[in-house]
Design a protein around this nucleic acid. Structure first.
Lengths: 206, 206
DNA sequence: TTGCTAACCGGAACGTCATTCCGTATAGTT
DNA sequence: AACTATACGGAATGACGTTCCGGTTAGCAA
């Protein structure tokens, strides 16, 4: 197995500084992969991704030795982007509006990764760590928004971030017949539910 | 598209009577496919299935023009087997014991199709009809067992078959860390819950 | 600026697999 | 026993994932 390959998705210290063109290609590949996965699903030909990124397949495989590495990297990158947006939204809007907007963003994220979801639950051990990453990254992001909104008295304080993440993702899974409009309606309902007990910071009433 | 091909899995009138060797091969293929899917997953090479069935790949493709046709057929055959067992168990045991045994059987079915589940939710339109088939076949099967047990006063009467099917399948989905023992414990709990209100045929109490 | 070299690049080459095609064999019938 | 619609097997085809290697270049030192 390749050990010294840059591990994208876990931003931090690189083993050795990456050459500029290599970094550029990695970025192109991730962007291309995101687009192709969204259009043609996670099973799209690797060649297509390489072509779209403007590199050869050799380059692709240098950076992502296995197909699953690319999938993982794209997933993590999108999780990161979604999580990071929480702070940005919190800075740009009031607590309630920020929460609303972030949930929209989260729904969009879920829609994008529709294809990925199947891969995640396919039992391939390569993806075992991803659900954990998902929660670890998105949980605190949503948690801080919830806390802020609760502190501002806009929503109740007794709903956990992970529960809400899970509930929304469940509601976004399209059942036969229901379209995305259904999902949006149900999620709006959920958010109104949050508002219902606004001001009561702790203790769930019966 | 092939129109006149025999459509396995929907037992009924055949367009024209199948030649005996053909029927034999179809059976061998389904049995082989079940075994291989269970061992190596739904993505196992088609050749492996053909070999195990003792036929050439040409024969396999004659009867199942697409890979997904084979997957569908195996799935439906297992659903049928599971559903049919309900009547047999009802005839051989008392209502309560029959229900218990059938739920065991259902759990076993769920375990077998672990690999299939991923395929089902992969978004491939070839599998769109399967969840419906699942409910349509298993719903009434479990429903009759529930009715009989409720009528005998062994369990409460206010739990729907589809709800129970769904709940059990959810509990069988292994979360990280929990083993199958966890599933069995939770399902036992569920069944005890059924017993709890035994004798009260209608109306859910608060 | 020039020269050097480790790191990187592209795409041909290889192996695996799903799917198709067609000459041969045979079940069922007359 | 002969006939023919039907079915069989496996070679051939084409698409992909993955590996390999000769040529290129970024980054650094003199």
């Amino acid at each position: 197995m390749a050990e010294n390959t840059a591990e994208p998705g876990a931003p931090g210290h690189a083993p050795r500084r990456l050459r500029a063109d290599a970094q550029r290609n990695i970025d192109s590949l991730l962007e291309a992969a995101k687009a192709v996965f969204g259009t043609a699903g996670v099973d799209a030909p690797v060649k297509e991704i390489a072509d779209r990124a403007g590199v050869g397949v050799g380059t692709l495989y240098r950076h992502f030795p296995q197909r699953s590495d690319l999938v993982k990297a794209v997933f993590q990158r999108e999780v990161d982007a979604c999580a990071d947006e929480a702070a940005a939204l919190a800075a740009a809007h009031g607590p309630e509006r920020a929460l609303e907007k972030w949930l929209d963003r989260y729904v969009e994220f879920l829609a994008t990764k529709r294809g990925l979801a199947a891969a995640l639950h396919s039992g391939d051990p390569a993806f075992d760590a991803l659900p954990g990453y998902f929660l670890q990254r998105l949980g605190p992001a949503l948690g801080s928004l919830l806390d802020a909104a609760a502190a501002a008295g806009a929503i109740r304080g007794d709903v956990g971030a992970e529960d809400l993440l899970y509930a929304v993702s469940t509601l976004c899974r399209p059942v036969s017949g229901k379209g995305p409009a259904y999902s949006r309606r149900m999620i709006a309902l959920l958010v109104d539910g949050l508002r219902y007990g606004a001001g009561r910071p702790r203790s769930a009433s019966a």
